[in-house]
């Protein structure tokens, strides 16, 4: 048992223990805090399997943002009305067996992989030069499968529109209420010191994503977090849903993506193709636009819809 194997096993056992604890524990708040810790451990795992980009995304979006989102919901007395009766013990055992069987099937496939592990890495490496980007994952996200990334931004936008559609009719166009009545001094101090720093880090991570692990999703999440901090500290109030600047910010990313993509028809022979030599600047332009839009979208998702009585 080499030391790393011991560390890996310890990490896996802790994570599985934490997961079971999260399902079993009665208090919802404890489960959510457990989930955030789980997110941190998970990003360690991503580092262990050589996927720093994904580790960054996991800790920013998976652990952080999702944790904050769940925390905001924690305020509910009953964590939501029960959707079904608590099933009887034999039924729970049955579901346990079924879920276990699915996990077993999955485990068997992991332990007995196909003879040759298929990979597209050589193919990606071969074309990396023409995308003008060093980081292969950014190449996949922004060049080879740029269409997926574009659609994903639309998914986040539609999720935001879905969240906003839950606003009560009276409060449409109002400002979501984020800051609490009295803002504690330490939070204010943290916001005043940390936010400028966070913005620099966010932009740095987006910029460095071209050649090193990083990227726009991670950067945008950090910017969104900073924006939440500003709103929570009451330095700025959340933008009104109907504010034109917010809508422009939301739309600028996809719009630039479409513009450059459609220009690809003429200049580079295919939608979302980049004329050779110009790939890197174009990708950076798209990433800048997306940074703004996704930061705005994630921020407003975290801020949630305006409630009864909020005023524009």
């Amino acid at each position: 048992m080499t030391e790393t194997a011991f560390f890996d096993t310890l990490l896996v056992v802790t994570m599985i223990g934490l997961a079971i604890w999260m399902i079993v524990v009665r208090d919802v708040f404890a489960a959510i805090i457990g989930f955030m810790a789980f997110g941190l451990l998970l990003s360690l795992v991503w580092l262990r399997i050589e996927a720093p980009d994904v580790g960054l995304t996991e800790i920013a979006v998976g652990g952080g943002a999702t944790g904050v989102m769940l925390l905001r919901a924690r305020g509910l007395a009953s964590a939501g009305d029960a959707m079904n009766a608590v099933p009887s013990v034999p039924f729970r055992v049955l579901v346990g067996v079924l879920a276990g069987a699915v996990a077993l099937f999955l485990g068997a496939l992991v332990v007995f992989p196909p003879a040759v592990a298929p990979t597209l890495a050589p193919l990606a490496a071969e074309h990396l030069a023409s995308t003008g980007v060093g980081n292969p994952i950014t190449a996949v996200l922004m060049a080879y499968r740029a269409f997926d990334t574009f659609l994903e931004t639309v998914v986040v936008l539609l999720a935001l529109i879905g969240v906003w559609s839950l606003t009560p009719d009276g409060a449409w166009g109002a400002r979501p209420r984020v800051a609490s009545a009295d803002v504690p001094a330490p939070l204010l101090l943290l916001a005043q010191w940390l936010v400028p720093l966070g913005i620099v880090i966010g932009i740095y991570i987006t910029w460095v994503g071209a050649d090193e692990p990083g990227g726009k999703f991670q950067g945008a999440t950090i910017l969104a977090a900073m924006w939440m901090l500003v709103m929570m500290a009451g330095l700025r109030s959340a933008p009104a849903l109907s504010s034109r600047r917010l809508r422009i910010a939301l739309v600028v990313g996809p719009a630039i993506f479409i513009a450059i993509g459609v220009s690809g028809f003429h200049f580079a022979g295919a939608f979302l193709a980049y004329p050779d030599g110009l790939a890197k600047p174009l990708i950076l332009a798209i990433e800048a636009g997306l940074l703004i839009s996704i930061a705005a979208m994630l921020g407003m998702l975290l801020a949630g819809p305006p409630l009864e009585g909020d005023r524009p």
Partner: peptide, 28 residues
Amino acid sequence: FNLFVAIELVTFTAVPLVCLDGKAETMR
């Protein structure tokens, strides 16, 4: 995977349509 993103798009557009009238049981 492209189809996965597509069926997510469909779900995210269909669910808010269901509770467009804002009543409790349509949201449930």
